[in-house]
């Protein structure tokens, strides 16, 4: 069976490195991007099985917009998105409960930074489509 492919889009390359290590040690193939434009490019070219997305990259809402863009594209909308962010600490606004709202925050999972490896792996496992 081919390994599942996960794309991480986050501008913190050190954090990306840590997540990549965790995922790779669990036999996932990892692709990364550090900004929204590259991220969109990779989503289209790599067709990952899961997208791990940060909210604040160039602007404070890049991740939100990217998730909406993906979910409104019929070719990409089935890729599950796991939002990994510290936006709640930055803004004081609670987003977790609105995650999944198709217009506002069309993501499938939502985790606060920092995330422990086992929590991340459990969430990733939950969101990945079962390729039987």
């Amino acid at each position: 069976m081919e390994n599942m492919k996960i794309l991480i889009v986050d501008d913190d390359v050190d954090l990306t490195k840590a997540i990549r290590a965790t995922l790779e040690s669990n036999q996932y193939t990892v692709v990364t991007a550090a900004d929204r434009a590259t991220g969109m490019e990779r989503v289209k070219s790599e067709r990952p099985d899961l997208l791990i997305l940060d909210v604040m990259m160039g602007t404070w809402h890049d991740g939100f917009e990217m998730s909406r863009e993906i979910k409104s594209d019929p070719q990409l909308k089935d890729i599950p998105i796991l939002m990994l962010t510290s936006i709640e600490d930055k803004t004081g606004i609670e987003f977790k409960s609105t995650a999944g709202d198709p217009k506002w925050l069309p993501v499938d999972g939502f985790l606060d930074k920092p995330v422990e490896p086992d929590v991340l792996l459990a969430e990733v496992k939950k969101l990945l489509p079962s390729k039987a």
Binding site: L15, A18, I19, S86, K113, P114, E116, P117
Partner: peptide, 8 residues
């Protein structure tokens, strides 16, 4: 957050 993830 990054330090914690790397240490993790």
């Amino acid at each position: 957050a990054t330090i914690q993830s790397c240490l993790g």
